[in-house]
């Protein structure tokens, strides 16, 4: 590469960029290179006002290959998945999906992720669901359960071990 970012001495990473693009193509979408930086996505981004996530910058960094900067940024984890960026992009691009792709790559490359996500994954692997039926309270603060309300017990996956096995394999593959 003959391009260097003089503020960080980082160089564009072609390989990492390819990985992002592959995931995006798998989703049957156009890769970030089509982005002409109009900024419409960031103007309407529901996360930006709170957390400074700039979807147009995510697009710019990924089309220029500065993936590492994205992988290390905390903002990518603040997308609320409102999908407005994808809905309104005049080039039919999907910053939200590029953000998903980058997060997926961050997970694979062993970046620290919020425990909320790992717990959720463990729950799905263990029970098939992100959580088990909870005891809740009604407006009068009485505790209520699923059974207590007369609802039938949840019928989850019968062979959870089997599901777990397949999921572990599927996670390694690119099912995209």
């Amino acid at each position: 590469m003959s391009i260097v970012d003089l503020t960080s001495m980082a160089e564009p990473e072609g390989e990492a960029q390819k990985k992002v693009n592959e995931i995006i193509k798998g989703l049957k979408e156009d890769i970030p290179n089509d982005c002409y930086q109009c900024g419409k996505c960031t103007s309407g981004c529901e996360a930006f006002i709170l957390t400074e996530l700039e979807p147009h910058k995510v697009m710019a960094l990924s089309k220029s290959g500065f993936i590492d900067e994205l992988l290390n940024s905390s903002e990518i984890w603040t997308c609320v998945t409102c999908l407005k960026c994808k809905e309104r992009c005049p080039q039919d691009l999907a910053p939200v999906d590029v953000i998903f792709a980058v997060k997926n790559i961050a997970v694979v490359s062993g970046k620290q992720i919020d425990s909320g996500y790992s717990n959720m994954l463990q729950a799905v692997l263990g029970t098939g669901f992100i959580q088990s039926p909870k005891e809740v309270v009604d407006r009068e603060n009485n505790a209520v359960t699923r059974e207590g309300l007369g609802l039938t017990p949840m019928k989850g996956p019968e062979e959870i071990a089997k599901l777990q096995q397949v999921l572990m394999k599927a996670a390694m593959e690119t099912l995209r």
């Binding site: 798998g26 792709a101 997926n104 959720m120 799905v124 019928k155 996956p157 397949v166 999921l167 593959e173």
Partner: peptide, 22 residues
């Protein structure tokens, strides 16, 4: 009601899009 459904996978998109698909 049928036997066997699990999570739709949407909450796992952040971690692994293939899981969502599957």
């Amino acid at each position: 009601d049928i036997e066997g459904p699990a999570c739709c996978g949407a909450p796992l998109r952040h971690i692994n899009l293939s899981l969502t698909m599957y």
